[in-house]
Design a protein around this nucleic acid. Structure first.
Ligand code: FES
Ligand code: FES
Lengths: 139, 139
DNA sequence: TAGAGCGTAACACTATTTGTTACGCTATCG
DNA sequence: CGATAGCGTAACAAATAGTGTTACGCTCTA
């Protein structure tokens, strides 16, 4: 699974919202991310589906958190954006019947699974509240 | 850093060469990988630069290993293909002066660095000779 | 009822890997 | 010496994924 910038961006947005407390529109979020409201909606939609944020249409609408930053981990955001798989072992599939290819793939898969576990543990340990605190004290 | 299929493919090729003992041409390797000789040369060139294989031109030329499979680890192949960085944390750079973005990036970087260490350890533990043995016994 | 705001489709742009063609250089064989 | 096998490299096409943008529809509230 390809790693992209969505995770970092969404963490930024969520912490921003948690610290400043309020509801934010896609328009305002887009400005703070130097991008476009549609991109924001697209990405935030994943978070909504996972229950981290909710959206309201109509005048006065926008996005808001469904729970405090202390109850959201990086892993939650990651799962919302990319599902179960964090790291995907890049295997080969050129000669599926070849035992060498299969052995190589098996070893790679094992190694990546191990790294993924590490990453998952790290992600689970960090709440967005922590990130907010670090930002507040370093500012 | 994006993960691609080169690592798995090159492991396959190297083990194949180690087990079958001989020199292989780009043409034959390309056939076994369902691809093109140029792609093979391109990728093998990285391995040559790192000292894992050597190439000879002219009639009867081709690629050969510079040392036995027992002295090549997955990490060696990885390093040859992608350099130092195995995993690259996908950070955001939308608002460099914002302390929240910086705090989020810092946490992500730490998490990915940890996972990279795990992966590096795993890669270093596996020699291509091991993969060859597994393939031989499972065939 | 007007307008703010989300939902979504459609398309262009970018970057990276992969695939392909073409051509040049070198070493061996006859 | 000439033909041929083989690598080296440049140039370009194709596929993929994220990103950016425009357009239009729906909903809620003032
Ligand atoms: S711009 Fe609002 S927290 Fe960074
Ligand atoms: S094709 Fe030769 S080892 Fe798999």
């Amino acid at each position: 699974m390809r790693q992209d910038g969505r995770l970092a961006r969404m963490i930024h947005v969520l912490v921003h919202m948690g610290l400043l407390g309020g509801r934010e529109t896609s328009e305002r979020i887009a400005q703070m991310l130097n991008t476009n409201p549609v991109v924001v909606r697209r990405t935030m939609a994943s978070l909504r589906q996972y229950g981290i944020v909710e959206s309201e249409g109509g005048r006065g609408g926008g996005w808001s958190l469904t729970r405090p930053l202390s109850e959201i981990t990086i892993l939650d955001v990651q799962r919302a954006l990319q599902g179960e798989t964090i790291l995907d072992a890049p295997l080969s599939n050129d000669h599926p019947s070849c035992p060498v290819e299969r052995a190589a793939n098996a070893k790679l898969q094992r190694a990546f699974a191990s790294a993924e576990q590490t990453l998952e543990r790290e992600f689970q340990q960090v709440t967005l509240a922590e990130i907010g605190e670090i930002a507040m004290t370093s500012a």
